[in-house]
């Protein structure tokens, strides 16, 4: 598990895939990220991240049906895998545990 790494942007994309469970494909992920981050994200970055994570085994994909507004192309839906979920959990735990160590500091 230790050799597997998850970049910052990858983590965001993975979170989004997990959040949009079974309905996530390129455009929805892009739009979800843009909405949450409130900044422009490039579709290419999303796809590269998705491909990398698929190679690592964090997500898996399935093809959806053909819809008209996509120029006849199939959607490629991404679902988080157990491994991906474990990775997210580990990441979350890690941050949480460190966060908890922060003494109560007031910047009041």
């Amino acid at each position: 598990m230790t050799q597997q790494s998850l970049g910052e942007f990858e983590e965001l994309v993975l979170l989004m895939v997990a959040a949009q469970h079974d309905e996530a494909y390129g455009v929805t992920i892009l739009e979800g990220l843009e909405e949450k981050l409130d900044k422009k994200v490039n579709i290419s970055a999303v796809h590269v991240a998705l491909k990398r994570m698929e190679d690592k085994g964090f997500v898996k994909s399935r093809f959806g049906g053909i819809t008209e507004d996509r120029g006849g192309r199939r959607k490629k839906f991404y679902v988080i895998t157990a491994l991906g979920k474990k990775m997210l959990d580990a990441q979350y735990d890690l941050r949480n545990s460190i966060y908890k160590q922060i003494p109560k500091i007031s910047f009041g």
Partner: peptide, 15 residues
Amino acid sequence: KLCDSIEGDLMELYE
């Protein structure tokens, strides 16, 4: 392997 789905995304965004 990626061509079809990415092109679809591109098209959708374009529209």
